[in-house]
Computed example of a mutant assay.
Amino acid sequence: MQSFPAMQAGAMALVYALVPAAHAASADLLTGNTRLACEATLCLSTGAQPSECSPSLNHYFDIKKYSHGGLDWSATVSARRAFLSQCPASSDQGMPERIDAISRGAGKCDPDYLNRTYAATAYRWRKRSLGGDSGDIIYDVHAIPTVSLDKLPAYCVTYNDHAWTYDLSVRYVGVPAMGGHWVNAQAYTAAQAKWDADHRGRWASGWNFSLKNPRPATNSR
């Protein structure tokens, strides 16, 4: 992955960083949606987004298509792809694939989206016998907030792992049955250490873990 140091130099630097030499002569003339499309393409290729990215990102994420009262994701992707394709560099080698990856993945591959979309409930549980002649068994069950998806969707892998992407990677902390979740890759080491401290040792000893409630439907305890 490559860095984008020019992003710190202001909005025009964003355009020059994306527009190759073949288009550089006209970079000063880029305005309106053409300029926003170039800036958005670059801004959506890095997690280190300066304030200059706000206008283009707001425009990009405001592009939404609806059908039957709900968001039509396929049509939204197509419309966002069409917007990014207004950048003069969009037809250069490798750019159509890059723009397609951005339009499918941007906004759907960050920790907030993944943790919210795939939020689920896991269970820490054990069975205990009441003893005596009855032989009754009770289930001691505790619900745990978790994120069930621990592997990135294919469109996120394509978006995050592209050679022109910088600082977009995310990683999964823990395991789904024990309260796992997504974090930015830079925060992974600290987050994993905290998860280990919170979810190992006495907390886990003697307990079972599952994504399905283990209590039998007929068990009311």
Rank of each mutant, 00 (worst) to 15 (best):
R128C: 11
P20K: 06
N115C: 08
D133S: 06
A143K: 02
N184S: 08
S3I: 11
E97A: 14
Y16V: 07
L71N: 06
P145E: 06
A11D: 03
S78A: 09
S78W: 14
Y16F: 15
N184T: 15
M7Y: 13
G179P: 09
A75G: 08
T165C: 04
G180T: 12
D167I: 01
G70W: 05
P88T: 14
G47A: 09
A9F: 00
S103Y: 01
G32I: 13
P153R: 12
S54V: 08
A48L: 10
K108P: 03
K64A: 13
V170L: 11
A193N: 07
I137D: 14
N208D: 10
Q93F: 13
H199S: 00
N33D: 15
R128V: 09
E39T: 04
A13I: 11
D167W: 08
M178A: 02
G135F: 04
G70E: 02
R81A: 12
V175S: 13
S51V: 13
T46Y: 10
Y123K: 10
A217N: 15
S103C: 03
S26F: 08
Q93M: 14
F4G: 00
A191H: 00
I138P: 07
A89N: 00
F83M: 10
G107F: 10
W203R: 08
G69L: 10
G179Q: 03
G69C: 06
S169C: 04
E52W: 02
K212D: 08
C43K: 12
G131P: 10
V19T: 03
G32N: 15
N213M: 02
L149Q: 01
C109W: 02
I102M: 07
T146C: 11
A143C: 00
Y118R: 13
L114P: 03
F4A: 05
V183K: 12
A120R: 05
Y188W: 02
R81I: 07
D196R: 07
A217E: 14
K194P: 05
R35V: 01
W164D: 13
E39W: 00
D100H: 01
Q186W: 10
D198L: 08
A163W: 06
S129W: 05
R171H: 15
Q86C: 05
G94R: 08
S210A: 14
M178C: 14
R215P: 04
P214G: 14
H142T: 13
G94F: 08
A75R: 01
H199E: 01
P176A: 15
L152Q: 05
S90A: 14
F209N: 10
V77I: 13
A9C: 07
W125K: 10
I138F: 15
S26D: 03
K212I: 01
M7D: 09
R80Y: 02
A6T: 00
L130M: 02
D28C: 14
K194G: 02
K151V: 13
D198V: 12
A177G: 06
I102D: 04
Y123C: 12
A187R: 09
M12K: 12
Y60E: 08
V141G: 05
L149P: 03
P88Q: 12
A37V: 04
A82M: 04
